[in-house]
Design a protein around this nucleic acid. Structure first.
Lengths: 132, 132
DNA sequence: CAAGTGTATTATACCATATGATACACTTGG
DNA sequence: CCAAGTGTATCATATGGTATAATACACTTG
C-alpha cells in the first residue's frame, strides 16, 4: 500500500488490481464527493504519472475512462478539467449507486437470502464499521 | 451467453469473465441455496469439462477453490462431494454475505452517500427488480 | 517560440487465463 | 484381478490485458 500526494490529492496504489482501475475509482470518488471542485483542473497526465512513478500511458487509460463517464472535459494544450455540469456529476453518482445496489442484491439473492435477511446483514455490518 | 446442462445442474458461461470464476460463483450459489444437497456428488472434473466444452484444467481450478471454501470434499477415485456439514455451509454463506455487505457500503460511502440514502437506493432498486 | 498540455504509435515484457496432451494414484464394479 | 472412472500433476503453448519505454505530433498559453 503506497500513498502519494499529487497536487492537492491523495492517491493510494497497490498491486492487487490494475493501476489504471485504482486511479479511475479514486478519481471518480474524489469528484463524486466534491473533494475536487466543479470545473477544477486535475493533475496533468505527465504530472500524475511522475508523482505516482508510473507510466503516462497508464494514467491516460484512467483519464479516458473518466471522460467517458462524463466527469471530465479535456482541453488540448490546457489540461483536463472536472465538468462544469453539476447535473452530470449527480447523474453519474446515481447511475453508479443503482448499479452497485443492483449487483449487491443479485449477489445476496444468489446465496439464497431474502429482503429481511439482507437488511439484517447490512445493519449488522454498519454497526461493526461504526465501532472502528 | 451459453447455457448448458451438466447432470441435473444448469450452468451459464460467457466470455466476459474468466471461465473458472463463473463456474466457481455458480457452484457456490447452487450449494449455498441448497440446489445441490448436502453430501451429494457433483459432476466429475472430466464430465463437467466435456459438457461445458472447456478444458479439464479449468474446471479443476474452480473445484480447488470450492474445496478451499470448505464447501466440498474430494475422495480419490470416487469424485467430489458437497460437505456433510450444514454448519460449514452456513458459515460460508454468512462470511460471504458480510463481505458483500461490507464492500457495498464501502463503495457507497466512497461516492459520498450516507445511511439513509443508501437505504433509499436499495428499496428503489428492489422495487424495480420486483416489477420485472 | 518555448514549455506544457493531450494524443498516438511502436516495441517489449509479464502474468493470468485457457487449452492440449500425457501420465500417475486411487477406488469401485463387474 | 482389472477396466473404467475418479482426482491430480506436469509439460508446452497461445492469447489478452496490463504496464513500461521511447518517441513524435497537435494544440494552447505566457
Amino acid at each position: 500500500m503506497d500513498e502519494r500526494k499529487v497536487g492537492s490529492l491523495r492517491l493510494t496504489l497497490d498491486f492487487s488490481q490494475p493501476l489504471y482501475e485504482q486511479i479511475l475509482a479514486q478519481m471518480r470518488s474524489l469528484i463524486a464527493r466534491g473533494a475536487i471542485d466543479v470545473g477544477e483542473k486535475i493533475p496533468s497526465v505527465r504530472e500524475m504519472a511522475h508523482e505516482l512513478k508510473i507510466n503516462p500511458n497508464t494514467v491516460m487509460h484512467a483519464y479516458q475512462e473518466l471522460e467517458r463517464d462524463g466527469l471530465t472535459e479535456k482541453r488540448r494544450g490546457q489540461g483536463t478539467f472536472v465538468t462544469e455540469s453539476v447535473t452530470q456529476i449527480r447523474h453519474f453518482k446515481e447511475r453508479l449507486a443503482f448499479d452497485y445496489s443492483d449487483q449487491f442484491l443479485d449477489k445476496m439473492h444468489s446465496l439464497g437470502f431474502r429482503w429481511t435477511e439482507i437488511q439484517s446483514f447490512l445493519t449488522t455490518t454498519r454497526e461493526k464499521k461504526g465501532e472502528r
